[in-house]
Amino acid sequence: MKTPLFILCTKRVPKPEKVDHLFESGKVYNVGTLEVKAGETVYLEEGSVVCGCVSALFAHGMKILGNGILNGCVWHPKEENGEVRPMISLVFCNDVKIQGITMVDGGSWHMVPGACRNVEIEDVNIMSRVCTGDGIDIVGCEDVTLRNSFIRASDDCVCIKAASYPDPAANRNVKNILVEHCVLWNAEPGNGVEIGYEVRCDEISDITFRDLDIVHCQQSGGVLTIHNADRAYIHNIVYEDIRVEDAQAKFIDIKVLDSKYSLDRSRGRVEDIFFRNIEILNGNFPVSIIRGFEMHTEMSWPQNIHFDNVVVLGEHINSPSDLHMVVELSNDIWFNGKVHVKRI
């Protein structure tokens, strides 16, 4: 899998009448950092290659459209991380649309909306190869939809955070995020679908991951993971209709913990998590973990976690042991309507 062939199918995105930044087919551009303002439209024609980054601040109503390629290789040496900047950085941007483009070989995270609202991301392709090459990080945002996209990331494919990157303003609550109809490939470090580690806000809620095909989750990461390493109350998270072809390390990994990424002095909570119609089709039978946090001055136990119609390699899962799951410092773990780890 070191030299895969990617055949990417994306709907054609027609050029709108109003285009403020046009990149023509058959041409290669080096834009450095393209600053996009409110109401502007960037259009990459099919066959165009744009080397550089896109940055937007308070750019309400901006759009990035087309079937061209945004290339990040100019920002870093081959096989090494580059300057820490996202290929697409959106800060305080509302009513945003990104559709059709392909992003390749960024030096760090690829697409990062931070402190944004009403963001629609559709039919994008992302392929990275360097460590920390996250696909899409949704940081401190509300009302974001990601659909019909392919992400092959050398770190987290899709990640939900509240953190100071891309801007300190993104240390804010996260709500109403929908990720659906996507194909994901997590390579080397990181996780397939992640919430954490940086969750420096009061609340992360109403997140749905639906109708996903996770073709690989390689090496040390997990497929569906929540790592609460700060103070956030993480709840009402739904994973449903997800198919996994290859999980080499961990399947479900939910932890409340103090980590090297933690800045908040207190630990948050993880509650009301729902897994429905999830299946691992091939490969290994990976372990799963649910683990809380307990010190002499503080305690946070994940609770009310539901598993309904989970199937691993043809085996219907009815208990933590069926799922090869380690459960520590946790309450109210339910399988198909029956509680197996009950609060005392």
Rank of each mutant, 00 (worst) to 15 (best):
A247S: 13
F285C: 10
N191W: 03
R267M: 04
P168M: 03
D253F: 11
R243P: 01
E298A: 08
V256M: 07
S288K: 10
E240Y: 00
A247G: 07
Q303E: 15
K260V: 04
D246T: 04
L263Y: 09
G190R: 10
V193W: 02
I289W: 14
P286S: 07
P302A: 04
W301S: 05
V238W: 06
D211L: 00
I273R: 06
F274I: 09
F251V: 01
I252E: 13
I254E: 10
Y233C: 11
V223K: 12
R265K: 15
N304P: 02
L178W: 07
S300Y: 01
E198I: 10
V238R: 10
I177C: 03
A187L: 11
S266E: 14
R210E: 05
Y233R: 15
V183Q: 07
D272M: 09
Q303D: 05
D211Q: 05
L257N: 11
I254K: 04
D264E: 12
S288Q: 14
M299F: 06
T225F: 09
S259A: 15
Y165K: 07
A170H: 00
S288R: 14
Q218N: 13
N282V: 03
K250M: 13
R265G: 15
E188D: 15
E203H: 06
G222E: 12
S288P: 07
D167L: 00
Q219T: 15
I237E: 02
E180M: 05
E240W: 00
F209V: 05
Q218K: 13
D230P: 07
S220R: 13
E298K: 04
F251M: 15
F285H: 11
E188I: 13
H216F: 12
I204E: 01
N228P: 06
E240Q: 03
T208M: 03
D211K: 05
L224Y: 06
